[in-house]
Design a protein around this nucleic acid. Structure first.
Length: 524
RNA sequence: GCUCCCGUAGUCUAGUCCGGUCAAGGAUUCGGCGCCUUCGACGCCGUAACGCGGGUUCGAAUCCCGCCGGGAGCACCA
């Protein structure tokens, strides 16, 4: 055996692959399909092609956003890699006063998943499965590993911190059973009794001591109302459902690692072999101060422009900005399965998107915060000019841009340039007046020459045919300005590049011909 | 504080399991040059990293020990 290993190791890498391939087998011919940039994805323990079952468990409290990226794309990646299945299981146990389940998000989340190319193979709702958990709870009780505790929450917590037991822990099995039946039979009110798992009270991790399995809540659940009063805690529900649903691998964020331990502990005491776990660290985009509760508040109040508001950094907002799902996926997968928390600048995502859209995106002139400039001695033959739609790609064609003698120029291009000579890009050079540009009014400039000088080149829009444009920015701000005449032919959903501004996407609901042209800023 | 996890350039990542092919590769950012009259793209060039200290070894990013730093969890939320 070890001789064979030594022999194989002595072979150079490529030859190893060749030799492997010659031996046949499904894995040999496709060693691994690593994403283009970095990102390492290990084999899943014991995974068999076609038999992998994964699950996705979002809590329905908002649209999916960039922070959910790893959950979505990593699970999707492994489904593809092994040809498996993904179950969408809504974790809609009753929640709490602060964390309410809301039905509108079920559909929203499914839509988001579909738009991410992740159509689940099946959809489940935890709230439909509540009765299923009761016999399982009974199994744990019968194994002597659970008890009903009627201590107030504070006492329970204090005991846990101190590592001491309360009187309920030593109840007989019969007493526990009758207490449990009392819980199920409305004998206790919310907060008055819980079913707790017996672990080691001296466990070094205080968080792990005698955790709660089931509790009582009479919150009105939007799907099942007050039909159930005894609800499972997340980790118990998963200890059950990962088995019941035949999940083969649990891939989730590292915030849930303690739940692994809980699930394994329960499985061990029931003599069940459960699936292995995998985790990833938190992904943050530096510019995205994503807060689900803030987004929720602002969307509800109307402060945000729905769940596609750029400030939510939701998937739908990225799409609205012209950032393709493909780019987002590549971006997220480039981080691999690393367990470290990562904070990455949005620029990395933008670069990924730019690669994909640059070659198909036409250039257009846009001037924000416009100042009207009239040019004296303007050449009579320059009523319009022919411009290429893309500087490097003639295939994208060209268009006619109405020019002077009157123009809109951006105020920020004019300030500090009093008395200077500047170039109207692709057109002429002009001399700006010596007086600084005021806040209002017009500017009179003078034509100087046509030659292509290496002087500041400014974006311009001829006043004739200029099209009003409203740009929605990443911070939710609106910028008004003038775009060139060709924008009248823009199409909903089209991605454009405003020169010296960046990529924008025409709003899907924009009606061609209506004023102003509404676009959403994507990125530089 | 307790538990677990993680430390490779400005940022992200490959390499760590199984020490040599790593005087550390890729992506992004930044700087320079060229070219294209643009945000930018492309080409070429450049800056820049194994957290610190010991140990093992002919040889350490990789193994061992100790520090230091960062993160997550510590709910009758999910």
């Amino acid at each position: 055996m070890s001789e064979v290993v030594a022999e194989v190791r002595s072979l150079p890498g490529p030859e190893r692959v060749d030799r492997l391939a010659s031996l046949g087998g499904p894995e040999a011919t496709r060693p691994k399909e690593a994403p283009s940039t970095g990102g390492e994805f290990p084999e899943l323990e014991g995974a068999e092609r076609g038999k992998v079952v994964l699950r996705l468990a979002p809590f329905p409290s908002g649209a999916l956003h960039i922070g959910h990226g790893r959950m979505i794309f990593i699970n999707q990646y492994y489904r593809e890699r092994y040809g498996g299945k993904i179950l969408l299981v809504f974790d809609d146990t009753v929640g709490s006063e602060e964390k309410r389940v809301e039905t509108e998000f079920f559909g929203l989340i499914e839509e988001d998943l579909r738009s991410a190319g992740l159509t689940p193979d099946a959809v489940y709702y935890k709230s439909d499965r509540i009765p299923l958990f009761y016999p399982w709870a009974r199994r744990v009780i019968d194994a002597g590993a659970a008890y009903v505790c009627t201590c107030p929450a504070e006492t329970l917590r204090a005991n846990r911190a101190a590592g001491v037991a309360c009187g309920h822990r030593s109840q007989t099995h019969d007493a526990t059973v009758s207490e449990w039946e009392k819980m199920l039979g409305n004998g206790y009110g919310p907060g008055e009794a819980v079913l707790r798992l017996k672990t080691d009270l001296q466990d070094p991790d205080p968080a792990f001591r005698d955790r709660v399995l089931m509790r009582i809540s009479d919150l009105d659940h939007p799907r099942v109302g007050t039909k159930y009063r005894v609800w499972p805690m997340l980790e118990f529900s998963w200890a059950v459902d990962d088995i019941e649903l035949g999940v083969t691998h649990v891939l989730r964020g590292k915030d849930l690692v303690i739940e692994d331990r809980m699930q394994r502990y329960i499985w061990d005491l029931l003599g069940i072999r459960g699936p292995p776990f995998g985790h990833w660290g938190i992904l943050r985009v530096r510019e995205a101060k994503v807060s689900k509760s803030k987004s929720y508040r602002e969307v509800k109040s109307g402060e945000y422009d729905g769940w596609a508001d750029p400030r939510t950094w939701s998937f739908r907002s990225l799409e609205r900005r012209g950032i393709s799902m493909d780019a987002t996926r590549a971006f997220v997968l480039s981080f691999g399965m690393s367990l470290s928390d990562i904070e990455v600048p949005a620029e990395t995502l933008y670069a990924e998107n730019r690669k994909r859209i640059d070659a198909t995106t036409v250039r257009r002139a846009f001037v924000a915060d416009p100042v009207r400039v009239d040019v004296d001695e303007y050449p009579a033959d320059l009523g319009s000019v022919r411009l290429a739609n893309h500087p490097d790609l003639p295939a994208l064609g060209d268009r006619d841009a109405p020019a002077g003698p009157s123009f809109y120029l951006a105020r920020r291009d004019l300030v500090g340039r009093a008395g200077a000579e500047v170039r109207l890009k692709d057109l002429i050079n002009i001399h700006l007046p010596d007086e600084p540009v005021g806040l209002a009014g017009e500017v009179r400039a003078r034509f100087t020459s046509r030659e292509n000088k290496r002087i500041p080149r400014l974006q311009w829009v001829g006043t004739e045919g200029a099209y009003p444009v409203d740009v929605l920015g990443v911070e939710g701000e609106h910028t008004r300005g003038w775009g060139e005449a060709a924008l009248a032919a823009a199409q909903p959903g089209q991605i454009l590049q405003f020169e010296r501004v960046g990529f924008v996407r025409v709003e899907s609901d924009w009606v061609p011909g209506s004023n102003p042209l509404r676009v959403v800023y994507g990125h530089p």
